[in-house]
Amino acid sequence: MTMSTPPEIVGFHARRTARWHWAEFAFWTVLIGCGLLFPSRYLIMTEIVRLGLFALSLDLILGYAGIVSLGHAAFFGVGAYSAGLLALHGIVGEPVLALLVAGLAAAVLGFATSFLVIRGVDLTRLMVTLGIALLLEALAERFSDITGGTDGLQGIVMQPLLGLFEFDIFGKVGFWYTVAVLFVLFLLARRVVHSPFGLSLRAIRNNPLRASAVGIPVNARLVAIYTFAAFYAGIAGALFTQTTQLASLDVFSFERSADLILVLVLGGTGYLYGGLIGALVFKLLQETFSILTPQYWLFWIGLVLVVIVMIGRERLHRWVLFLPRSIARAVRSGKTAAGGAE
């Protein structure tokens, strides 16, 4: 095929970043393959996938919009408790519907608090996000008649998924359910970041002042993505409750928010797969360290953080992604040639 006019060439290149790469197909094939090959590991794999979804949520605000949050667990927690309460009191019995309701509850909180977060500089944002998560933890402890206090929500029984699939003790249904949710939400996020809206977020992260000089309503965009990310975090929290049938105060904890940043940083920010890859690496590290020193794996996680920063995140990713990037580059140049552009 041949393309000659500049608008067609422009359109071709503009769509190119959004095109599916073969490595992406490989990623999802491997994920599904793991599910089929290791049926005895459903529980840990569910944990990884769920953590990946949670980190994807943080990537949307940190990697794309540049908002550093120390309290992303706030939305995870709201999702977790919402799903727990909905199931416990039989308000919304069907899990998928309850998942959506829980996600929306987190989104409402995200929308309400976004106005606090978009104000001010990094430091204020850190404090406000951290403060909101701690506030919710304190509230959950205070209203222990609703939340079960330090014991957490007890006796949650999940109804069958879509009325068809009963959650089993091996976690098979839980795993495939989590993977399906991740995949759907990933497709949505992928669509969003390749839209004009997603592009404007990258511009805002680069330089907010310049962004408004191009006509971008910076605050409105940040409110929108913060709310959207809160929805994702809420879904991750709800999946936690639905697949483990518990929700306790630690869903709000600072450690959860801090670990999440580590997960994302391990995988790399701003390309959507960072959270998913980071979740896998994080869990592997956690498992390894737990075998080494069961009680003190926190020490090793801390060491990993310090080492990552001292080496430099950029440099680290150059090393880690050296092979996949060079393959990608080879493929891309082949593609450009085939497209006949330029």
Partner: peptide, 9 residues
């Protein structure tokens, strides 16, 4: 600019 569904290009 606020179009979040349609891809660039």
């Amino acid at each position: 600019g606020s179009d979040w569904w349609r891809r660039m290009g």
